[in-house]
Amino acid sequence: MPHRPIESQRANGDAGRFVTPDEELTRPATTGRVASAPKRVAIMQPYFFPYIGYFQLIKAVDQFVVYDNIQYTKKGWINRNRFLKGGRDETFSIPLKKDSDYLNVVERRVSADFNKRKFLNHLSEAYRKAPHFDPVFALVEQVVMLAELNLFAFIRNSIDQTCAYLEIATPILVSSMLPIDHALRGSDKVIAICNALDADTYINSIGGRSLYDKDEFKRNGLTLKFLQSKPIEYRQFGAAFVPYLSIIDVMMFNEKSTVRDLIELSCDLL
């Protein structure tokens, strides 16, 4: 059996926390659906401190599902992201234990040799003069120093803690805990998850526009919408703006209230 991470609990109430397996499985349900569930749902892979559009999607829905039982992709962004270094973007990665390329994310492990303090020092050098360095670096340090080697649990915690910092209260569910046929793929799996949660609207990032068909969702009683981020620009260190970086960059250079406004107001549903 793959390692099943223990669900994290928040000290800061229920805002944006992950629903535990016991909570999910003890919810009253009829015909495979979670009773009285919210209506707007989004589903995404886990990403380590993802870009702002990820949090726009979380904020736009009533329930957010994060995949844990999907295959890890070496060339993807699950354990990688970009931050600002010397006026340019620089990629950082969470090193992984060598293992089969066919394992799911929840079955992968963070390398025991991951030099967390070196990583944090590198980030500190890049952002120590940013206006909101102290609170944001404290957040990142708390996440990075988590004593957890399960990749999904480690990455999920970055999403969880960022939601807490930004006061995003959307409940976040783990895909493997939902009562669906997990052998399903593509739109069939998305529709099954929406049905299990009694959703009437599925919201996907704009990048999935070529993957999903509105008529197919309509035939299954669902409205399909796409979230498109508006161009976002803010002052970094005075040089030309570098876009599409980790949410770390947005938080380093903006008041928390400004970040919340960018999340809520700088996107459209199509």
Rank of each mutant, 00 (worst) to 15 (best):
224 L>G: 06
32 G>Y: 03
34 V>W: 14
74 K>S: 14
36 S>T: 10
200 D>V: 09
251 M>D: 05
47 Y>A: 10
146 L>H: 01
234 Y>F: 15
186 G>N: 11
201 T>E: 13
255 E>T: 08
117 R>K: 08
52 I>K: 02
222 L>I: 04
193 I>D: 06
214 K>A: 15
187 S>F: 10
155 I>Q: 03
263 I>T: 01
268 D>W: 02
194 C>Y: 05
114 F>S: 12
117 R>A: 12
241 F>P: 14
85 K>E: 11
33 R>V: 14
29 A>P: 07
213 D>T: 11
251 M>Y: 03
264 E>F: 04
156 R>C: 04
185 R>N: 10
254 N>V: 05
253 F>A: 06
137 F>H: 11
205 S>L: 13
253 F>M: 06
161 Q>V: 02
66 V>N: 03
107 E>C: 07
93 S>L: 10
250 V>H: 04
212 Y>V: 13
96 L>P: 15
98 K>E: 00
193 I>F: 08
142 Q>V: 00
98 K>I: 00
40 R>K: 12
200 D>L: 08
64 F>C: 06
165 Y>K: 14
202 Y>L: 10
214 K>F: 07
42 A>E: 05
204 N>E: 07
206 I>K: 13
202 Y>E: 05
32 G>E: 00
53 G>R: 09
146 L>T: 05
203 I>W: 01
43 I>T: 08
26 T>V: 02
88 R>P: 00
194 C>S: 15
40 R>Q: 10
72 Y>G: 09
129 K>A: 14
95 P>H: 12
7 E>Q: 04
263 I>F: 01
93 S>N: 13
224 L>A: 06
178 L>E: 00
251 M>A: 12
224 L>Q: 05
49 F>T: 00
51 Y>H: 10
198 D>M: 07
58 I>V: 15
49 F>G: 04
183 A>Y: 08
96 L>Y: 09
151 L>E: 02
217 F>E: 00
46 P>V: 09
34 V>A: 14
156 R>K: 10
38 P>T: 09
182 H>N: 13
197 L>K: 07
244 Y>R: 14
163 C>G: 05
61 V>M: 07
164 A>K: 14
130 A>L: 11
63 Q>F: 08
18 F>A: 02
159 I>V: 15
87 G>P: 11
21 P>G: 01
158 S>T: 02
48 F>G: 02
270 L>G: 09
30 T>I: 15
66 V>R: 01
